[in-house]
Design a protein around this nucleic acid. Sequence first.
DNA 1: TTATTATATTGCAATATTACGATATAATAA
DNA 2: TTATTATATCGTAATATTGCAATATAATAA
Lengths: 107, 107
Amino acid sequence: MGVSKSEFFTEQQNQLATLFKAMSHPARIAIIQYLLQVDSCICGDIVNELPLAQPTVSQHLKELKNANIIKGTIEGTAICYCLNPDTLKMIEDYFNRLINQLQNKCC
Amino acid sequence: MGVSKSEFFTEQQNQLATLFKAMSHPARIAIIQYLLQVDSCICGDIVNELPLAQPTVSQHLKELKNANIIKGTIEGTAICYCLNPDTLKMIEDYFNRLINQLQNKCC
DNA sequence: TTATTATATTGCAATATTACGATATAATAA
DNA sequence: TTATTATATCGTAATATTGCAATATAATAA
């Protein structure tokens, strides 16, 4: 079908899945890593940085923005995209808690 | 196209994307959370736990296994699936390092 | 006003994902 | 041997994702 039965899962499970889906493409990982690296972060830079056409990059940026992983601020003609620390810290927290729970399980 | 241009990205970027893709479905998040919760972890339990048919669950387990997030051990007629701490710790590390780098960026 | 520049949206083709019925396999039980 | 039980694979329909050319929009510059 291609349709997830998301109505049968908890809101937290769906939220996490949505976050991971936003990070499930190498271009979007590359965007995150680039934003982490540079201080200025105009979208044009990202287009030049990636081996993809401008509409494709714009689409990937949109998905990261929808997932609240990045946020964009209009800066004259350009748009300044940056990472959203809150969302990333939430994911970090999730994995930290997960690893803590991961004691003496089978295998 | 539906085809990622993965050949243009680094191996690390592709690996991370693959890991996140494996976790990008609520059913697979639910499986991870269930394995974290229980001590016994036979696949049949997982099928009963999820609102999905057995072939569908089997497919999700396969994807988690391919991504090295879980591992399966044959145990008589059943298969014992468990989390792979190494992979999960790798992801934890990645986010810990990411958050550390996330100092004084713009926005 | 008319460029120009930066980014977003539309439309579409190629491919991937999701879900499940039907069936296969593989191990033990009778 | 023939069930039975547990899990995997196949085939396929419905839907989603990816990528980009073409085009739209929106802001400044000339």
